[in-house]
Design a protein around this nucleic acid. Structure first.
Lengths: 233, 233
DNA sequence: CGGCGAGTTGAACGTAATCAATTGTCGTGG
DNA sequence: CCACGACAATTGATTACGTTCAACTCGCCG
């Protein structure tokens, strides 16, 4: 069972809908688990056997074609919920982009618990609605934005979400951060190739909008201009 | 108020979660409304004031950039739910693609009712999860599929969803149907231009996979081959 | 120091976009 | 009923953006 009392995401994850003794009951159903970078938690097409909360780290949700093309359809950060509750097979795989820690439940146990806790379901519904909005924004990016707009949008998005995931109450976003993915994964998320990602990053660097101290780090030097590029004015 | 007893979608819409007197109570909050083709029910960015069930017709959810590019991020059919419950502004506009009829609620009235009816919320959650899965599949299309794969996927999808929306218990899909949108809207949904849509349809016609009796009709002559193209083997 | 994987850079290519002209369809009024 | 105009769709020619293929660089660990 999980020790919810000391969980770092207990106030932000869906668990925050519960009163202490409900939380204790849920905790009994879950267990904390480490997932190392590259490890796959759920395979695309498999029956949905588990759901989880992300405690730390970043994971991707991805879909593949038979001939090997991949599209990342979601990225989850600490306090986000993973999985497909209430039956069905998982239409996407879940793989750790960084070493991560999750609080994992069997789907059936979680489903049963959720059915009897409307507040939990309500939180889950709100999260799912938010996730849907985010997915739709990303559809705009994939369908209509140019390569440079896509890269700029991604950098803003990661900066924002890492800022929100961090516990700092003041920073709504980060101006320096570590990319939780490599170039290939950026391409899979943006619908671009690795080469195009690289070229666009170089262009932003040469325009002095960002710096790239090393291959995983980004410094946003001119957020205003980056946002202008991202929103495709 | 709406006359739920005779509503054609009462067994498929989220209302099916309710027992008769609950249904009557919800019916008092809603009213049926006609929406004619092209009419916009909700504007992108506006505060989310209403939600609704689709009774008949087809509507689009769409997002635009400042410079006028548009991406359709969802298409709703009879029995589907429209809107963004529980606060927030609507991140997309809702516009009728065909003449339509909806059962409309003010958001606050619906939210209040939903809070006290966990079964309704549960149905809504399931629908939202399904919608999210569909959005993610579409992200794969937008990010990684070629023009011909996109067109084939769209035709299959419309065939399936019109089949499911129709009341025929035997037809899982239709082999002849009316497109609920014009070429421009197909492009906005697929992330393509109008010209590319037209060319790809012509190619499918010349390959004798489909027929195009008139500009709004499609006959699928060889569904197997169409599916092969769609799934990007 | 050597070798490997990730990333960058370059050159050629190809798919879909853009620009432009034509055809087709529908609704209206003569 | 047909002629007309407006708009939707198709078709063609050209362009451009991102992909593909290929060579090279960098950083890291043995």
């Amino acid at each position: 069972m999980s020790d919810c009392d000391t969980c770092v995401v207990r106030n932000r994850a869906i668990c925050s809908a519960l009163v202490p003794d409900e939380l204790a009951a849920l905790g009994k159903l879950g267990r904390k688990q480490m997932v190392s970078r590259g490890q796959t938690l759920v395979w695309e097409g498999d029956e949905s056997l588990v759901v989880a909360n992300v405690i730390q780290g970043v994971l991707k949700l991805s879909v593949s074609t038979q001939d090997g093309r991949e599209q990342i359809v979601g990225v989850v950060f600490p306090s986000d919920f993973i999985g497909r509750p209430f039956g069905k097979e998982s239409p996407y795989g879940v793989t750790a982009l960084t070493d991560a820690e999750v609080c994992i439940f069997t789907r059936t146990a979680f489903d049963g618990f959720a059915k009897e806790h409307p507040d939990l379901q309500h939180k889950l519904l709100q999260r799912t609605l938010d996730e849907l909005d985010r997915a739709r924004q990303w559809m705009m990016l994939l369908g209509r934005k140019t390569a440079s707009e896509r890269i700029a949008t991604l950098l803003i998005e990661i900066s924002d979400r890492l800022g929100a995931a961090g516990c700092s109450p003041i920073a709504p976003f980060l101006e320096k951060f570590e990319l939780p993915m490599d170039r290939q994964q950026m391409g899979d998320l943006l619908g671009l190739t690795i080469e195009t990602v690289s070229r666009q990053l170089t262009k932003l660097k040469e325009a002095e909008i960002i710096e790239l101290p090393d291959r995983r780090s980004v410094v946003i030097k001119d957020r205003r201009r980056l946002e202008n590029i991202a929103t495709a004015a």
